[in-house]
Design a protein around this nucleic acid. Structure first.
Lengths: 335, 335
DNA sequence: TTGAAAGCGATACCAA
DNA sequence: TTGGTATCGCTTTCAA
């Protein structure tokens, strides 16, 4: 291992000069700088991370708490993880992945040993054990998702209530009086995932305000449940003329296939809208108008929120992102 | 932050005694141990990771190099990542996720700064830049997958050649003389993923030996390609009476649906076999006999191989896992 | 513009 | 069984 000492010796300067040349925290004469650069290159020097952390103030490591539930949607999960790594690297941070651990012990371990400068937590539930934990630990943290008690912690999420309201108002504006919804698996709700409750709430209220009748189905991720949900919605006396999807891609795909099988045309017979889609709604068999979950943006904001906290200037409030509706022709006036 | 110094003071002993009490590297009297334990608990002490790394020999951090290709299969990717984290935690290791970086710079950074004790590399291609890199760096590493030049580096993989041979021989043994294959996207092959070449090679050879005619299709991950592949295989004069799948789940699902639509019965009209499945073949609409990719086992072996190398006793050879065939009734004698 | 030296918080060797 | 202390490789203050 090449140390800063050897570099200093080779360049004929003191180690503090080498250190400052590296950090740029004080001015160095051109000739000295050159000698140091040469020595660094010749010796192939890279500073020792642990020594730097111990002497300096920060680790440049961020922990990502990503508990993976058995019934979770892997592709979506992966997109969050990748996006967090990407955002972290843009700030010169590496990411330590906390996945297997009990949510609490992993954070406790890396924070207690000062291994990380902050934590980004995803897969947030309404009553999340990580909230009181990070509060007591007093570490820099940002949640992707909003727990019930979000006081004093930074949170980022799509405004699910607003997204639901927006969705309902758009179909209502087209004259639809009976609107169906196909939602995430019941298991998610039981695990008390906040975003579902907020979405449902927003949809209900908007429907009540607009005098729209709401019919809801929840589909599992297992095969057949998307088709069953469609059948359940349509095989009644006054079926909905518009359907709002708030579920994962496989369910939507199956629902679209089922609609085709039943000879239902989109948007002539039924209007379709994707809400908070974690997939790309324009790559479906029938591209859907609606709102995409801005995963990359959420992760970027979370990373910045967590890191900024250490520097004092960090927000510890909840930030809800506005829905961004895109029209792909799957919504039409009621016939 | 509570330091070992404060613990020593509180317990009325020296810091070396505290250190030894923690590591267990020398015997401590019961009373002293108790006083130390009390002090640790009272003060809520956790050793500082960076200090420990600097003074000690190891970081207890493992890097996972997981380049994510745009056309990759996210769920499979995620399973590897999760499995590596799981295996690492069992050895008291945390995982640093290298995802966004150019494959080489990420490894160079964490290895150069001595941030990690070793590297596990997935998504290995036949000519992988990471191989010469880790060789020149001389760090502990294990590849999940086998590059062309695997000299001196530890690799783990399913024996794809053997798996292909096993698959072909099983259907040949049932009298099938024309066998179809639906393979991974061509993009994978172009990116020179070794496992595909090895699988194809094994299949070809076994077919030649058994006098079996082989018909091959490659399906993209995009919608419709699974169905198209089925049609391409069956819409000919002498269609195969058995089909081997070596592709991702969405393609298999679509192929099965297509078979149903065409009124083809399994296994009466056609035998089906899943080879190196990265999904669970018994959760398909038509459960498939075949070999599952032992992801968890591969990752565990890779983690151990990487970590063991530091302690001298590590293997740096390629380890190919034998296929483990499971019968689920999708293969029958040719009619 | 540069250097000397005091930490940072552990580990582990050498003595007692 | 225990304590003192050199050491790990760097950052940063204080002096020059």
């Amino acid at each position: 291992m090449v140390t800063i000492n050897e570099v200093a010796k080779a360049a004929g300067v003191s180690i503090s000069t080498v250190s400052y040349a590296l950090s740029g925290k004080r001015s160095i004469s051109a000739t000295t700088r050159e000698r140091i650069d040469r020595a660094i290159r010749d010796l192939g020097y890279t500073p020792h991370a642990a020594a730097r952390i111990l002497a300096g103030a920060q680790t440049n490591i961020l922990a990502l708490s990503a508990p993976l539930h058995a019934d979770g949607h892997f592709p979506t999960h992966m997109r969050f993880v990748t996006a967090v790594v990407e955002a972290a690297r843009e700030r010169e941070y590496d990411v330590l992945l906390l996945a297997r651990d009990d949510e609490v012990t992993g954070i406790r371990r890396v924070a207690g040993t000062s291994l990380v400068d902050g934590v980004v937590a995803m897969g947030v539930s309404q009553r999340d054990d990580r909230v009181p934990l990070v509060r007591s630990l007093g570490i820099a943290v940002a949640f992707i998702g909003v727990p019930d008690d979000a006081d004093g912690v930074a949170c980022v999420d799509l405004d699910f209530r607003g997204t639901a309201r927006d969705a309902l108002e758009r179909v209502a504006a087209q004259g639809h009086r009976t609107v169906g919804m196909i939602g995430h698996p019941r298991g998610y709700v039981d695990r008390r995932q906040g975003f579902i409750a907020r979405f449902d709430d927003g949809l209900e209220r908007a429907a009540a305000e607009r005098g729209v009748r709401l019919v809801r189905e929840w589909a599992e991720l297992s095969r057949g449940s998307g088709a069953r949900a469609v059948d359940a919605l349509l095989d009644v006396d006054e079926p909905p003329t518009a359907i709002v999807f708030h579920c994962n891609e496989p369910v939507v795909e199956e629902a679209e296939r089922r609609l085709r099988e039943r000879g239902v045309r989109v948007p002539q017979d039924v209007s379709l809208l994707a809400a908070a889609a974690s997939y790309e709604p324009d790559r479906l068999e029938i591209p859907l108008s609606g709102v995409t979950l801005p995963i990359e943006r959420m992760c970027r904001i979370a990373v910045e929120a967590a890191l900024d906290q250490r520097e004092g200037r960090g927000e510890t409030a909840t930030r809800l992102l506005d829905p961004d509706f895109v029209d792909r022709g799957s919504i039409a006036p009621v016939s």
